[in-house]
C-alpha cells in the first residue's frame, strides 16, 4: 500500500474528523431535546444504511426492520437488566431461570443483539431466497407480526404486553454516533467490494448475474443477514436510549419510516440513506404539528391524529411516481466530487 493519501481519502478523513468533533460538541453544548433527536438520527442512520443494503443495493424488497429492531431491543434489554431488576418487574409470569441468569455488558449485549437477528435472518433466507418472486417482502411483513405475537405470548421471557422497563441508559451520542460511523464505513466497504458488485448485479439482472458465476442465493443471504445484524444492534441502542420497551413500540410504522428514508435519499445510495435520515427524522419532529389542532386565525381544525402518517404515505407514493431516483439516485458522495472535477 502506498503512503500517499489520495484526494478521496482526505475527504473521508475530513468527514470522520468533523463527525467526531460534532458528536463531542453536541454532547457538551446542546440541550437534552436536541441531543435526543441527534441520537435518533444516529440510530436511524444505522438502520437506514443497512435497510438500503438489501432493498436498494441488492434490490430485494423487504419489510424486515421493525422485526429485527424488536429482537435487538429485547435481547439487549434482557442482557443489560440484572437478575434482581428482572425478577422485580416480571408481573405477568415468573421469568424462566435462564432469563434471570442472562447478563452482559453493553458491548456484548449489542453484539449478541446483532448476532441473534442475523441468525434469524439466515433461517428466513432459506424459504425466501431459494425461490424466485418477491416473497421476502410478504414473509418479512409477517415476521414483524409474529415477533409481536411471540413477545405478547411469552411473558416468562418478555414480560408480555407490559414490556421491559428500567433498562440502564447506556446509549449516548458517543455510542450511537460512533456505531453509526462504523456502520456507514462497513456498508460502504461491502458496496465497494466484489460482494457489493455482485449485489448490484443481482439487482440489475439476476439471470445475467448467475451467468457470471455469481451464487445469488449466497449474495442475497449475505445482504439480508448484514442488514439484520445492524438492525439488531440499532434496536439494542434504542432500548438503552429509551430505557423501556414494549411489543407495541415496534409497529410497521417503524419500517415505513425507513422505507421513506431510503426512497427519498435514493434507493441504492448509502449517502442518500444518510441524507434521507436527517430529512425524515428531522422532518417527522417538525411535522408533529399536523396531528395537532391547527389555528388559521379565522377557524381552527380539530386535532387529527394520524394525519402525519397520511402525509408520509403520500410523500412515498409521490416520490415513486414522479421522482423515482430520489435525491441521490444511485450515486454516492464520491461521484459528486467526480462530477465537480469535469
Amino acid at each position: 500500500m502506498s503512503i500517499i493519501i489520495r484526494k478521496d481519502q482526505w475527504i473521508n478523513l475530513a468527514i470522520i474528523a468533523s463527525t467526531l468533533w460534532f458528536i463531542w460538541f453536541a454532547s457538551s453544548h446542546f440541550d437534552e431535546y436536541t441531543v435526543r433527536i441527534l441520537n435518533n438520527i444516529a440510530i436511524f442512520t444505522i438502520l437506514a444504511v443497512s435497510y438500503n443494503l438489501i432493498n436498494g443495493v441488492t434490490g430485494q424488497f423487504s419489510l424486515e426492520p421493525n422485526g429485527f429492531v424488536a429482537i435487538g431491543a429485547y435481547v439487549t434489554a434482557l442482557l443489560l437488566l440484572d437478575g434482581d431488576a428482572k425478577s422485580y418487574q416480571f408481573d405477568i409470569e415468573d421469568p424462566y431461570p435462564w432469563v434471570l441468569a442472562l447478563h452482559a455488558n453493553f458491548i456484548w449485549a449489542l453484539f449478541f443483539a446483532g448476532l441473534f437477528s442475523a441468525l434469524l435472518a439466515l433461517t428466513l433466507s432459506f424459504p425466501v431466497f431459494r425461490v424466485r418472486g418477491d416473497y421476502l417482502a410478504i414473509v418479512t411483513l409477517g415476521f414483524g407480526f409474529i415477533i409481536r405475537i411471540l413477545a405478547i405470548n411469552n411473558p416468562e421471557i418478555t414480560n408480555g404486553s407490559l414490556g421491559l422497563n428500567d433498562i440502564p441508559e447506556f446509549s449516548n451520542l458517543y455510542w450511537t454516533g460512533g456505531i453509526a460511523l462504523l456502520a456507514v464505513w462497513g456498508i460502504l466497504n461491502i458496496v465497494n467490494s466484489k460482494f457489493g458488485r455482485a449485489m448490484k448485479a443481482v439487482r440489475d439482472d439476476e439471470d445475467a448475474a448467475i451467468a457470471m458465476g455469481v451464487n445469488t442465493f449466497k449474495i442475497k443471504t449475505f445482504a439480508f443477514c448484514t442488514s439484520a445484524f445492524l438492525e439488531g444492534v440499532g434496536g439494542g441502542l434504542l432500548a438503552a436510549l429509551l430505557t423501556s420497551i414494549s411489543p407495541d413500540l415496534f409497529t410497521f410504522f417503524f419500517t415505513f419510516q425507513l422505507l421513506i428514508i431510503i426512497v427519498l435519499g435514493g434507493l441504492g445510495s448509502t449517502t442518500g440513506a444518510v441524507i434521507g435520515t436527517v430529512l425524515v427524522i428531522g422532518g417527522a419532529e417538525w411535522m408533529r404539528f399536523l396531528d395537532e389542532p391547527m389555528n388559521f386565525g379565522f377557524f381552527e381544525t380539530p386535532a387529527l391524529p394520524g394525519m402525519r402518517m397520511v402525509v408520509f404515505s403520500v410523500i412515498l407514493i409521490f416520490v415513486m411516481l414522479f421522482a423515482r431516483e430520489g435525491i441521490m439516485g444511485k450515486r454516492e458522495l464520491k461521484d459528486l466530487f467526480k462530477k465537480a472535477k469535469k
Binding site: F61, L63, D134, A137, F252, L259, V314, L316, I317, M320
Partner: peptide, 13 residues
C-alpha cells in the same frame, strides 16, 4: 421494486 413500494404506500395511505 418501485411497484411494490408504491403498493405499500397505497396500503398505508
Amino acid at each position: 421494486i418501485s411497484l411494490l413500494i408504491t403498493a405499500i404506500g397505497i396500503s398505508f395511505f
